[in-house]
């Protein structure tokens, strides 16, 4: 069954349909949050988001896909979180940041190190760029879908994604050169 059918079954009182929806989307959503706010806050937000989904079950209308609906709720909750923290969520690009501080080059494969390097670089991206990158790579949205979801123009969404990738490339090249 696709998400829409599962959602309809859940609206009609089928608890197993929700479980399938949850298991289908939970990992991507949790990683999407993790990569933006860190572990502990991500788990709290993750729980809140699913609670909102549960409460809004009967209000859901299939005007958009379930995934779009879920990530719209997630994004709104994330913005609330940033507001409540009253801090600028984006971390400015910092060339001196020890990107591999957490990694152990001797005990890990080169590939794993590269992945860790990429994740560390991701944290340094401006929030808007990181968000677009994660919506594409983690949630699997297309650029037009991202533009609709975050309510910006298609060009703006493309531009953010391009800048994000460029910065990640530069960081990876710098790492490889080193």
């Amino acid at each position: 069954m696709d998400d829409h059918a599962l959602m309809r079954a859940w609206q009609e009182g089928d608890g197993t349909a929700f479980e399938q929806l949850y298991r289908h989307h939970k990992d991507s959503l949790l990683r999407f949050l993790w990569r933006q706010v860190g572990d502990s806050a991500a788990e709290e937000l993750f729980q809140d988001i699913w609670m909102k989904v549960i409460k809004a079950r009967l209000r859901y209308r299939p005007t958009a896909s379930f995934k779009t609906w879920l990530y719209t709720i997630a994004r709104n909750r994330l913005l609330d979180h940033y507001r409540s923290q009253q801090r600028q969520p984006m971390m400015e690009w910092d060339e001196t940041q020890p990107l591999l501080a957490a990694s152990d080059p001797q005990g890990e494969s080169a590939n794993h190190q590269q992945v860790q390097r990429l994740l560390a670089l991701l944290k340094t991206l401006p929030t808007e760029q990181r968000e677009v990158f994660l919506l594409k790579e983690e949630a699997g949205f297309t650029v037009p879908e991202i533009a609709r979801l975050i309510d910006c123009s298609l060009e703006a969404a493309k531009s953010r994604l391009r800048y994000a990738i460029k910065k990640l490339q530069q960081g990876m090249e710098a790492y490889c050169d080193a």
Partner: peptide, 18 residues
């Protein structure tokens, strides 16, 4: 990712809501 606790909480909440 080990999300068993989270899974249990959320699925229980969904069942309780129903």
């Amino acid at each position: 990712m080990n999300t068993r606790d989270l899974d249990d909480k959320i699925l229980a909440a969904a069942n309780a809501d129903l």
